[in-house]
Amino acid sequence: MRINIYMIGVGGQGLITTSNLIGAAATSRGIKVLTSETHGLSQRGGSVDVHVRLGDVNSPLIPLGGADLVIAFELLEAFRAAPYINENTKIIVNSRLIRPPTPRLRLPSAEELINKLNAIRNVKIIDAFNTAIKLGNPIVENMVLLGAAHAAGLNLAIDENAIIEAIKSTMRMPELNVKAFKMGIDLVNGSSPR
């Protein structure tokens, strides 16, 4: 078994926390996991990506076109995942658009970007940010995305309870985070919230 998860987003969105949860959950189930993050010059606001590799792996970086699952935490950043995507890659995209702070930058509308993404197979666009706000705190946006990713393929490697246990043992506000995680699962499965 080998699952490559490519995560991309904007610094401050909680990508590293999310990958740590996957790592702790996998380790608790005896599954080998390697995660590798790039954080460059600044702590906030730049592009951040994390490579997560589960199963029979030695090296930390996903090869080009080698992602089984992509979790894009932000709409523009989703397009930066292109080099890792193949025709079978499952892709979870957060519909939130965070404007790069470049003065006088012209951007397509969110609708246009979403339409482009919907043209490829296996894309699921979810509104994790507003879901998190409805749950009471935008900070749990990442857990909504993790839940969505779990339903979209991470569940083949790690069971739901392993992740819930990892949330409970490592995070502040465990109840809210578990709720957000479950909400993410429901958003992909299309079932009514539990």
Partner: peptide
Amino acid sequence: LGYEPPQRPPV
């Protein structure tokens, strides 16, 4: 993917 996103330099 039919679109090249703008760079998001560290700020």
